[in-house]
């Protein structure tokens, strides 16, 4: 099946289960029409391939890239909020957990959550494929590399659809739900699978259209499996304690206390700590798969936290008494 018709079919299905006004998607069919118009209008009669050989095309550039950027941003935003909501229900604590347990007597929430997870994986995958194909088509029509450059720009602005930490969280959610180290799902346009390799600390997500995403779950600071992981807004994942130390803040203060000048230890981008995402589902996955390691790390982090807070308050009292 050609992607255009598969995407159309997907959108029709999508309307049934994503009954949400905020739901955004890549306007693949409309943008393809824009490119077709451009192809017809700019091609010279002697050009056999009917290609527009201009590096920037006045006909479609104005609307094409700005709209695509907005659509990608909306897709990522919508996906993040939906996954956040889904996982909040899955890893509920306290009173909320109690209410959800009560509800389970009357309604099978787990199945509903799994179904929504599948819908969201398909949603992000289909939009990512649409984005890839439309940019490839743009470069083909214009014989340019603007489409490739646009991908780099999206990466720099952290709105690249498949680079969301929430996708890793969704993968972890599926592995937690299945209780296995791999799981498979069927979608409109092909098969999805998620696999965890404990020894290499790698999570692999295989999406349709030969999209193979390998997520390294090793913290670049302690060189160990991530514990209590946080994804900085640049997308790099670290243990909370490691990230706090890198940002020169105490564990009990948290990453929000980091200075805006603090850089990511890997890409050295500034201001990435304030919107760090706590990856609870991934932490649950580590907790279930490596129990002893997780307990060891928990005890260690508690010890460090206690020591830091003791040192901090001792110093505060010393200052207030005026001994320093």
């Amino acid at each position: 099946m050609k992607f255009g018709s598969a995407f159309r079919e997907y959108l029709q299905e999508e309307r049934e289960w994503l009954v949400d006004q905020k739901c955004a998607h890549v306007e693949y069919i409309r943008l393809k029409k824009v490119l077709k118009t451009c192809q017809k209008d700019t091609s010279s009669s002697d050009n056999k391939d009917q290609l527009c050989h201009c590096q920037s095309c006045p006909l479609c550039d104005q609307q094409f890239f700005s709209e695509l950027m907005k659509e990608a941003s909306d897709v990522v935003g919508y996906f993040s909020s939906r996954v956040k909501n889904l996982l909040h229900l899955h890893i509920a604590t306290g009173m909320q957990r109690y209410v959800l347990r009560l509800r389970q007597c009357f309604k099978d929430d787990r199945q509903a959550l799994t179904q929504e997870g599948r819908i969201l994986i398909e949603y992000i995958a289909m939009n990512a494929i649409a984005m890839r194909k439309i940019l490839k088509k743009y470069d083909k029509v214009h014989s340019s590399v603007n489409g490739e450059n646009f991908k780099s720009r999206m990466h720099a602005e952290h709105i690249e659809i498949l680079h969301s930490p929430w996708l890793i969280e969704l993968g972890a959610f599926y592995l937690n739900s299945s209780g296995l180290d791999s799981c498979d799902l069927d979608g409109v346009y092909g098969r999805f699978s998620c696999e965890l390799n404990i020894t290499k600390a790698v999570m692999t997500l295989v999406l349709p259209d030969s999209i193979n995403l390998e997520h390294d779950l090793t913290c670049a600071i302690c060189l160990d499996f991530v514990f209590n992981p946080y994804a900085l807004s640049c997308g790099h994942i670290f243990c909370k304690s490691c990230a706090c130390s890198a940002a020169s803040v105490m564990i009990f203060q948290g990453l929000k206390a980091a200075s805006p000048e603090s850089k990511c230890p890997i890409c050295r981008e500034v201001g990435v700590y304030s919107k760090a995402v706590h990856m609870l589902e991934l932490d649950l996955l580590v907790k279930r798969r490596c129990k002893d390691y997780w307990k060891e790390r928990l005890a260690g982090e508690r010890g460090d936290k206690l020591k830091q807070s003791n040192d901090y308050w001792n110093l505060q009292s010393t200052y207030s008494i005026g001994l320093m």
Binding site: C239, S241, S245, R297, G300, D304, L315
Partner: peptide, 18 residues
């Protein structure tokens, strides 16, 4: 920073201001 098994002992923490 903490690596598996690393407790609190050993290193000293320091603050440059209150």
């Amino acid at each position: 920073m903490m690596i598996s098994g690393g407790g609190g002992g050993g290193g000293k923490s320091s603050w440059s201001s209150s």
